[in-house]
Design a protein around this nucleic acid. Structure first.
Lengths: 126, 126
DNA sequence: ATAAACCTTGGAGTGGGCTTTAAGGCAAGG
DNA sequence: CCTTGCCTTAAAGCCCACTCCAAGGTTTAT
C-alpha cells in the first residue's frame, strides 16, 4: 500500500506520515525495491496508534520514546508498559477536564440569557 | 486583585493573562488609575472561562470571535449561542476521541505482552 | 529617599508540529 | 519513449500560542 492510499484510508496527510517516520513516532516503514514506502498491516497499525495518541494529546516526544523502547526489543517491555500507564493517566486527566468543560458549557447554553448563571464564574453570583 | 494574584489563583502565567487580553481572548480588564490591571470578579470569570475552553482544545481564534460578539452587546446573543453550540459539538467529538483512545490503551495495558491483541490494529489480527 | 518588588508596553524570540519547496527518480498508460 | 502522476529526500518555511526581554513607571517598606 503506497503512502497516498494510507493517507486517504487513515485520513492523515502524506507529509505527516513521512514526518512521523522521520522523527521516529512510528517505526521505519517497509520499503519496495524502488525505495518507495509499501505499508504493511503492521505499519498501518503503528500509524493508527500514533494517530489515536496524538488526537488524545500525547506529545510527539513521548511517542518517540515509546517507539525507541519498542525497537530495542523485549527487554524493554516493562518500561514500555510503565510509559503507557503514565500516558493513560495523562489522557484520563485530559478526558476529565474536557468533560468538565463540556458539562459547564452545556449548562451555559441551556440557560443562555438568564442572568447570573455563568457556570464559569469563579464564585456563585447571586 | 493584581495580575500576580490572579496568576497564582487560577494557575495561568501572568504573561498569558496579558497575551489573552491583548489579542481579545478576554475582554479588557479593569484598570487602577496607575494603569495597573485590577481584576474584578467578572474579569476572573472571563479568565476562568478562557482557561477551561483552551484546556478543552478551543482555539484562540474562536474565543476572540466569541468575545468580539459579546462586546457588541445583546444584539449578538443568538449568534453567540450558536457559536457556543458549535464549540460544544467540537468538544464532544474531542471527548469521544480521547475516551476511545483511553479505552483502547487501558485494554492494551491490561493485556500487555499477549500476542495478537493490539487494540490499535487496523483490522483484527487473528 | 532609596531599594525592592511590583507593574506597564511593544516587540522579539521560542517550541511544537507540521507543511511546503526544490530537485529529482520510478511506474503505468498510450 | 513520452507523458502523467506518483514517489523520494533534505532543508527551509510556517503557524499557533505563548514566553521572554528591554526600558521604564508605581508602590511599599525601611
Amino acid at each position: 500500500m503506497n503512502i497516498k492510499d494510507v493517507s486517504t484510508k487513515l485520513d492523515i496527510p502524506a507529509d505527516t506520515l513521512r514526518y512521523w517516520e522521520r522523527v521516529g513516532v512510528i517505526p521505519p516503514v517497509t520499503r519496495a525495491t524502488s525505495g518507495y514506502r509499501d505499508y504493511q498491516p503492521a505499519d498501518l497499525d503503528w500509524c493508527n496508534f500514533a494517530k489515536c495518541m496524538r488526537e488524545a494529546g500525547v506529545s510527539i516526544e513521548a511517542l518517540i520514546e515509546y517507539i525507541d523502547l519498542y525497537q530495542q526489543g523485549d527487554s524493554t517491555t516493562d518500561t514500555r508498559k510503565t510509559l503507557l500507564e503514565d500516558q493513560l493517566a495523562t489522557i484520563q486527566a485530559k478526558r476529565d477536564a474536557v468533560q468538565a468543560t463540556y458539562d459547564k458549557l452545556a449548562y451555559k447554553i441551556a440557560h443562555y440569557g438568564q442572568h447570573g448563571l455563568n457556570p464559569f464564574a469563579h464564585k456563585e453570583e447571586k
